[in-house]
Amino acid sequence: MTRGGVTGEPALGPPPLRLLVPAVVAGVFVALPLLGLVLRSPWERMPTLLADAAVREALWLSVLTATVATAVCVVLGLPLAWTLARTEHRGRSVVRGLVAIPLVMPPVVAGVALLAAFGRTGLAGAYLLDAGVTVPFTTVAVVLAHTFVALPFFVLSAEGALRSASSEYDAVAATLGADRWTTFRRVTLPMVLPGLAAGMLLAWARSLGEFGATVTFAGNYPGTTQTMPLLIYSVLQDDPPAAYALSLLLVGASVLVLVLLRDRWLGQVRAR
């Protein structure tokens, strides 16, 4: 019995080829484009690109809007997730379905829908215009677009985290005299915090890569709405090598954030 363990041979025998071969193909398929970016990028132009004002603006705007959108997702999405996980009402499955729609919606359609709601003649946009507020084609529009597409990622993963933190803890807290808000603040929230980190990461990553809804609803204005994906697309038209380098830069930035967060948060999760 231990002999198999020593040689590393799986106890149930080697994995079947018809599973192993597609698995290898999948791995190569994911790795190849990344490899292409790394090998085709003009590395020597990286310093000049990084010094370029338009690039720095776009990078900053991307990080800023993704972070703000993630914060909005938490502030609005966490209460929504709690409502879905902890209350019983008939409309719950309807709300859950509604929240999930942006997941399956083409981003361009999401942008069009946002125009229909917040555009100058939109449902809410008309009133906003009367109040002197214009949303479309501003940085606020970028954040709205990002929030719209990223919210389901956060809400669904937060709801999962809330469900796995059993409501029996809420019950015990109630017998100890805690009202529901106190229970949420002092019991539920600390327990689900590691789970929320995963949802925030998903929302942030989705937001960082957002293109379709942004370009439709917010436009492509350098300095106010041109995020990295939009800049990369623009540059690709007449200077593909520069687009490679910028793409690599964006991948690098998101991987960097991932690694930093992993050490900070996921490290704590593992320590628990």
Binding site: S166, E168, Y169, A171, V172, A173, A174, T175, L176, G177, A178, D179, R186, V187, P190, M191, R272
Partner: peptide, 28 residues
């Protein structure tokens, strides 16, 4: 409501709050 009844419950699976120390569990 349960919170206003002054009932102490020790459920079968205890449900000590995992993120709090023993002291903070009791101080809750």
């Amino acid at each position: 409501t349960a919170a206003e009844r002054q009932v102490g419950l020790v459920p079968q699976d205890l449900r000590l709050f995992p993120h709090l120390t023993a002291l903070d569990n009791v101080a809750f």
